[in-house]
């Protein structure tokens, strides 16, 4: 038993599974953190809209630069997300329509434009496709040069870590800083925007900053883990966390824990689960992580101690 465990967590584990799991965790937490505020602001679907426009963003970046290196792609995706948010605001104002309809209109259009550009330009030589944007390639982010746990202390081996890992780590630190530094402002303006405005908090600027942070999280995460996890992690861990506690700080703690659990379990089930049923093939880790986060949410809906509504909802 112990031997099995040691083998399971041995050199092969470090080489093939450690980095995907860590990247999965970083991506999940990076999305879940801003997701808490989106959830409470009734903007849970902004994450959905943003992850749909990542595709047109990377296509546009490819059309402009002609390369598929990571940095221009991420900048393109980030810009597309911000353009989408601005367009949603314009459609909302211009058409005087509910946010949901404005979002649906904008993200379907941008997604359609992205797909069409992709089909019309010759991208057969390069590896961007719709499926990649949706699914990511978590399984392929292996640490080729790792020889075991000792490699964690080996600078040469560390230099060959998949670049997604340090990138996501930096983004996660940035998100944690943003939420910590603007904790009061985020909390007050999320609870009572009119009061926040009256005491001098720039609620619009802060709201936009939150969306930009969301977009950065989505863009950094999609490259590694794909859009599905991004959408699922924006919504499911914070929603489940909301059903566990009635305090914002604790809710955020719960959401991080649930995101980590979903990422780890999802990866393990995707990689090893089919083997338990005698299948030699792995299934999509991204899809499985999303599925597990859904199961976590379902359990919270059934048994979460604070699952029932207590206060009246806002009228306006």
């Amino acid at each position: 038993m112990i031997d099995n465990l040691i083998t399971a967590l041995g050199a092969e584990f470090v080489q093939l599974s450690l980095t995907p799991i860590v990247i999965g965790i970083l991506g999940a937490v990076a999305c879940a953190l801003p997701g808490n505020f989106l959830l409470l602001r009734r903007q849970a679907l902004i994450g959905d809209a943003i992850s749909h426009v990542v595709l047109p963003g990377i296509v546009a970046a490819f059309l402009v630069t002609g390369t598929i290196t990571a940095v221009p792609m991420m900048i393109g995706a980030g810009c597309a997300a911000i353009v989408a948010v601005i367009l949603i605001e314009i459609v909302k104002r211009l058409g005087r329509v509910e946010p949901g309809a404005a979002m649906g209109l904008v993200f379907t259009t941008l997604f359609a434009a992205g797909v069409l550009f992709l089909e019309m330009t010759d991208t057969s030589s390069v590896h961007i496709d719709v499926q990649h944007a949706l699914l990511g390639n978590l399984e392929s982010l292996i640490w080729f040069d790792a020889e075991g746990w000792q490699s964690l202390l080996d600078p040469v081996a560390l230099a060959t870590l998949p670049p997604q890992l340090p990138r996501l780590a930096v983004v996660l630190v940035g998100i944690v800083l943003f939420i910590t530094l603007f904790w009061k402002e985020l909390k007050i303006s999320t609870f009572d925007a009119a009061f926040a405005e009256a005491i001098g908090i720039r609620t619009r600027v802060l709201g936009f900053a939150l969306v930009v942070v969301t977009a950065i999280a989505a863009v950094a995460a999609f490259d590694a883990v794909g859009s599905i996890i991004v959408i699922a992690m924006f919504v499911c861990p914070p929603a489940a966390a909301r059903l566990m506690t009635n305090q914002l700080g604790r809710q955020i703690g719960w959401s991080v824990a649930l995101a980590v659990i979903s990422a780890v379990l999802g990866y393990v089930f995707a990689g090893y689960g089919p083997g338990w049923f005698g299948s030699p093939y792995a299934v999509s880790a991204a899809g499985m992580i999303a599925t597990i986060s859904g199961i976590v949410l379902l359990l919270a809906c059934l048994f979460g101690p604070q699952r029932k509504r207590t206060g009246q909802r806002a009228e306006a």
């Binding site: 959830l39 009734r42 903007q43 849970a44 679907l45 994450g47 959905d48 949901g100 949706l134 699914l135 599905i228 996890i229 959408i231 699922a232 924006f234 919504v235 499911c236 929603a239 909301r242 059903l243 995707a270 089919p274 299948s279 093939y281 792995a282 299934v283 999509s284 991204a286 899809g287 499985m288 992580i289 999303a290 599925t291 986060s293 859904g294 949410l297 809906c301 979460g304 604070q306 699952r307 029932k308 509504r309 207590t310 909802r313």
Partner: peptide, 27 residues
């Protein structure tokens, strides 16, 4: 049944069902 609002429920259902669908497609 829960205190979650409709937008959260929509986001959860669409991402989880889609994720499950992708798992099935890879199978």
């Amino acid at each position: 049944q829960t205190r979650l609002t409709e937008d959260a429920a929509i986001g959860a259902v669409l991402s989880v069902f889609f994720g499950l669908g992708i798992v099935l497609l890879t199978i």
